[in-house]
Structures are given as structure tokens and as C-alpha cells.
Design a protein around this nucleic acid. Sequence first.
DNA 1: TTACTAGTGACATATTAGTGACACAGAGGA
DNA 2: TCCTCTGTGTCACTAATATGTCACTAGTAA
Lengths: 221, 221
Amino acid sequence: MEKILIVEDEALIREELYTLLTGAGYLAVCVTDFENTLSLIRAEDPDLILLDISLPGQSGYSLCAGIRAYSDVPVLFLTGRTAAMDELEALTLGGDDYITKPFHVPILLARMNRLLKRSAGAKKPESLSYRGITLNPVAGTLAVKGREADLTRTELKILYVLFSHPGEIVPRADLTEYLWDNDIHIDDNTLSVNVMRIREKLRALGIEDLIQTKRGMGYKI
Amino acid sequence: MEKILIVEDEALIREELYTLLTGAGYLAVCVTDFENTLSLIRAEDPDLILLDISLPGQSGYSLCAGIRAYSDVPVLFLTGRTAAMDELEALTLGGDDYITKPFHVPILLARMNRLLKRSAGAKKPESLSYRGITLNPVAGTLAVKGREADLTRTELKILYVLFSHPGEIVPRADLTEYLWDNDIHIDDNTLSVNVMRIREKLRALGIEDLIQTKRGMGYKI
DNA sequence: TTACTAGTGACATATTAGTGACACAGAGGA
DNA sequence: TCCTCTGTGTCACTAATATGTCACTAGTAA
């Protein structure tokens, strides 16, 4: 779920946005303290920022510049219907788009969507490695010194979690939750079976004992 | 020098735009015949299109859809300041941006600039190759050691996406979206059929298993 | 040993993709 | 205007397979 940070001082609009976004399936977070806004934004690390131009204290513009100093997170400016120069400035400051208040809901969503989609394409972890074994999530493969094995969806998911926490014990419950979203009637054994299938493929690649069983606790690579 | 095509029926605005753009160092071309606009646009092959929404005969929207059918050239809609739905439609139809009349000159130029810059980065290369197989998007052909096959538009689009992400799994949904713009009533099976048709052509060229099916995830070359 | 946890091989099936036939629309020619 | 051809979407059906379940075995810790 994408996290949207709302930076807007007018409480009414802020709450309206919050309700709207939450309803639309986003995780919305509001900024209410306009003193340390920047560090707050940084801490929240949102996927998109709705940024009002006119804020108490620091202006939206300078805030955006501060954000751009460390991140490329898309910024959608909220601006009153004012002089054209505003718009221009917003465009050139690295803000990715803007929308004028009062805004039309479908348009707001369409723009957010566009920005999110664009930025989603820009970031992706290429591959994860552990001890010469490389998991390539985009290709859906596991490679080790030239040899390669195709993975199915579930196998990929499991390995992805394990490779994301190398050396750590990942509880079976965590894996099950990640794979099947707490689907209550999923057999716990299913996980064992899937892990076994992965181990088979690993063996075919000449890899032994990559996935360790930590009895009563979980799996670990 | 970038070629800008002006599609605007009001002569006054059209000429104003023409002067403005020529003065700004663009090669401006005007459409004055609104009968065969689409083929005209196609023949001109501009780098950007300024497209009025309200045209005699065909609307700018449907025209844009027609353009999108064969090209990703950026389209900047010109619209009177009207209901919000205009904007929304423009955004969702694959138009890249819009601007309301009467427009502010620096803004117009800034937007054009933005679109041109973006599309310059996305420009299709002459040809794409993977393992000795060459896709030529301009010619619409697929070649492998001397032999060649013609591709239809849909086939080309599919292969283009796949060749642009060699070795990566491309989700069926992405392909469907790229091909048919989220047209809600497109059968998912249609993609399968088109992929099958491509595989037939590949087989005729002696290529087996270029396109892998990653069940539950997508296709991959 | 005992009690519990995880591994294994076989099996079932739901899901997903492939296939061939057909229908229809649009382009272009006669 | 009619005809033909081609591209493409749809349909009904078939094929493939990924994955969950089961019954049982093996391993491990107290």
C-alpha cells in the first residue's frame, strides 16, 4: 500500500484529503507540526507527498527544495488558483506536478496515480546476492556461477524474504503471512512443502544447505 | 530543431502559436485541413503535438486516441477553461498534459519543454536485439540471420515491450495496459492469442522458446 | 522414549495459458 | 458500391502446471 504524506495547514482540507485517500486505498499520513516538517517527512519516507504551497513559516517551495536535496519522491503541489508564475515555479523546482484548489477528486487521483506509476518504474532492486548465489526477482531466477534455475511465484516470494534478511531467522509465521496474507485455512505444512521444492531446485544447481531449518523458530540462509 | 504540429481551428490562435513557436526556435507546422487530420499528422511525424480539444468534426480526444494507436508522440491538449472533466479525460486518454486557454506563454513553453525532454529520453532506438534476434520497430520486422518476418501492430507492440526488458518478467497486466490502455472490456485471453500468433511467426523463422511463459507472473524473453 | 516439528512423495485440482475456429471491421482495389 | 484481404478480438474448448493437501516418515530436543 502506498504511503501518501499530506502537508497542508488548513485542517478542513487536510482531513478531507485524509478521508479521501484512505478511502481510495492509500495509507495517508498527515503533518500537523509545521516546525520540523522536513525531518518529519524524512522520517515518514512516503511514496508521494501532497504539498501545500502556502504553509505557516516555510513555504511549500523551499520545503520541496529541501526534500529534493535527499530524495526523488514525487511531489504534488496543492495551490490556490493564483497567478500563473506559481505554476511555473512549481514545475521548475523539481516538484513533479501540481493541482489547483479546490480540486476535482478524480483529477487528483489521476495525477497521483501518474506520479506514483512513474516513480515506481524508476526504482527497483536489481538483484539480491548471498554467498555467490544471486536471486533475481525481476527475472524470476536464481543463479549461481553460470547455472540458473527458474522459480515459480511462491518459490520466488519465499526466497525473496529470506534473501532480504540474510543470516537472520525468519519465522515460519512471517513467511506464511507474507505468502498467503494470513489466510486462515492454509495448512502450515504447505510452507514446508514449498521450502522442500526450493531445496530440490537448489540441489539441481549444486547448492546444498543454503536454507537452514531452525526448528521451532523458522528458516535462515 | 524540434517539429511542433499545431492542430487548432481558430485561425487567430493558430497564427499566434505559429509565430510564438517559430520565434522560440521550433519548427512549427499548422494543420488547416480538418478532414484527414490523422493521416496528415502521421505524415508530418512531429516531435510534439499541440492539440485543440474542440475541433470541427472529430474531437481532439478521439484524434488523440487515433494518434496513440501508432505513436507515443507527446500531446499537449489546448482546452478552454471548462469543466474539470476535460482535464481528466485528457490525462486518461494518453495525452501527456494539457493547458487551458488563454494560456500563459512561459507556461506553455515550460510544458512543451518538459514533454519534449521526457520523450527524448524515451525515444525508440533503431532496433532492439536479443540473442541474435533483431526487432526493428520502425520497419515492423523481426530478423534473424538473414530471415525476416513482418509483424502486425499488436505483435510489434508486444515484442517491443518484451525486447525492452530482456530477461525480465513482464506481467500480463502491464502488457495489456500498454496495448489497450486499460480498456476494461478487453478479454485477457486476447493477449494469449496474440502471443501465440507471435510464437507461430517465430517458429516459422526457426526460433523456438523465445518467449517464456511464467505462469502466474507474465512473459519473459 | 516421547512429543512435537519439519520433510517427503504422491495426488488432486484450481488456475492459468494455449489453441483453432470464427466473426467483424477497415483498407484498398476493381 | 461491392469484394477481398488482413488484422485483431472473442469464444469454446483443451492443455499444462503450480500449488495446496494428505498421509506418512524422519529428525530433534527434553
